[in-house]
Write a protein that binds this DNA or RNA. Structure first.
Length: 483
DNA sequence: CTCACATTTGT
DNA sequence: CAAATGTGA
């Protein structure tokens, strides 16, 4: 009879496509047991936006090669996760299933059900940390509740120890026989991108090795000037790590330790970078403790606000296509279409413009981002949109409306961001700007030689309308709450 | 209870 | 400098 600790371990991979800093993998390899890495295409993966799905396909391709280089394999299966795992256990005689925790409500429900079902069959089903610096339940206010404001949470966690970097396992043992696997190309991940996929590919470097190169370059060249340059979208001042973190091609603790080791040289830049990593933690903290942040107003007094909810509104269409006539807004929307990412300042400005100037529901913007971002992350996306709309966990006064024109003057002084992404009106536009027209659906009927549109809603008029509506909301809200 | 304070701003 | 409420210690 087979002893239980000789039986294979199934390593169920999700958003953790890496070998380093991977506690679930390291534990699976301990004791020399065979490991069967598997990725499952279930409903949740199928529901990913087109760009995120495309990027996942790229990541899986690289990760499968990485495993193959070490004498292992990535098994691909399609179907409800629990059924797939049960089938694999039956086929392989596996005695354990390991995975890295996810924190969104759908995953938590699924994983919890799978864990109890497997345990009831005597399978050692175990979840591990790995995606966050701090598990959400280990961060509490003085009275034991969850944080709702960033700064107090930052002050609480900033001095904490972060798990040290964990090397890739020396050896990943293969099972005696490999279970059959789907072929990645048959999954056709991200084919909904159509023309966009070729353009995205030119702006993408998937995989753990690329992630670590990016981090190393940021620590060498970027971190010392991060504080000043991260706000200027026309220069490469950010870490550029978001999509690696989103897919788990790099772990946040590796980023944290790399910056910590460079803190002398990094100075204020290192501190700012730590803060940004903790913003990601804060987003997960909020999603874990109030999952409804993904679907409804975090502050319910916003439920009565007269948002525009018409996705076919011509002004909303103009926003999605980068044709609002506001160069900062349009440049950022096109950057996202071409690269799958958007500079953080761009994200704030397009979100402010959609929710305030166009008074359109943040959910419409959030959904558009989910469809077009390769670094899409449910927690950060929801937090960011609700923060911008004013319905989120933030005390921003309602009159704080970004002015897309003065923001351009402030943060794109030399016009390089605008020129990089908007072809119209330029004699010889750069490739980045032309890439937009190579990526968009032909039926949009846009060409680089078109005249650049006049503003659909001016900065001043949009601000006036938004303030008026927000002021009315305050009065109505006070009525509702205090009768 | 009190009191300090709140990412990213506009005019 | 506006301007006001919720958060957290």
């Amino acid at each position: 009879m087979m002893r239980s600790d000789d039986r294979p371990v199934i390593l169920w991979l999700r958003r953790d496509l890496r070998l380093t800093d991977h506690p679930a993998l390291t534990a699976a390899c301990a004791g020399g047991r065979p490991v069967i890495p598997v990725f499952i295409l279930d409903d949740q993966v199928a529901a990913l936006g087109a760009a995120a799905q495309w990027r996942l396909g790229q990541g899986l391709e690289v990760f499968a090669r990485t495993l193959a280089d070490r004498g292992s394999r990535l098994i691909l299966r399609r179907g409800p996760a629990q059924e797939v795992l049960q089938a694999l256990i039956a086929e392989s005689g596996a005695g354990a299933v390991h995975w890295t925790r996810a924190y969104d409500p759908i995953s938590r429900e699924r994983d919890g059900a799978i864990k109890s079902a497997l345990k009831a069959q005597g399978i050692d089903a175990r979840s591990f940390p790995g995606s966050l610096l701090f598990e959400p339940w280990t961060v509490q206010t003085g009275t034991g509740g969850p944080y709702r404001v960033f700064t107090p949470m930052w002050k609480t966690v900033r001095g904490r120890d972060v798990a040290p970097p964990l090397p890739a396992p020396g050896r990943i043992c293969a099972p005696e026989a490999w279970p059959v696997s789907d072929r990645l190309q048959d999954w056709a991940l991200g084919t909904a991108m159509r023309r966009g996929a070729a353009v995205l590919a030119a702006h993408s470097a998937p995989g753990e090795a690329a992630a670590q190169d990016r981090l190393a370059r940021f620590i060498d060249e970027g971190i010392a000037r991060y504080e000043q340059r991260r706000d200027i979208p026309g220069v490469e001042g950010t870490s550029g790590l978001s999509e690696y973190l989103a897919l788990g091609e790099i772990a946040p603790q590796r980023c944290w330790h790399a910056a910590f080791a460079a803190r002398e040289r990094g100075g204020a830049g290192a501190e700012t970078f730590f803060k940004e990593l903790v913003w990601r933690e804060f987003a997960y903290h909020l999603m874990y403790h109030s999952p409804q942040i993904l679907t409804g107003n975090w502050r319910s007094e916003w439920d009565d606000f007269p948002w525009n909810t018409d996705r076919s509104d011509p002004r909303v269409i103009a926003w999605t296509r980068g044709r609002t006539g506001m160069p900062f807004v349009d440049a950022a929307m096109r950057e996202m279409y071409v690269t799958g990412r958007m500079h953080n300042r761009g994200r704030m400005i397009v979100a402010s413009y959609l929710t305030k100037h166009l008074m359109t529901h943040w959910r419409i913007g959030m959904d558009w981002f989910a469809e077009h971002l390769t670094d899409w992350d449910p927690a950060s996306n929801a937090m960011g949109w609700q923060w911008s709309a004013g319905s989120g966990p933030d005390a921003t006064p309602y009159f704080r409306v970004f002015n897309p024109e003065s923001q351009l003057a402030k943060f794109d002084r030399d016009g390089s961001y605008r020129r990089a992404w908007i072809a119209e009106g330029q004699v010889s536009p750069p490739d980045t700007a032309l890439d937009y027209f190579r990526a968009i659906p032909l039926c949009w009927g846009l060409a680089p030689g078109d005249p650049y549109p006049a503003p659909i809603v001016s900065a001043q008029e949009g601000r006036r309308l938004a303030l008026e509506a927000y002021q009315n909301r305050s009065v109505a809200g006070a009525h509702d709450g205090k009768t």
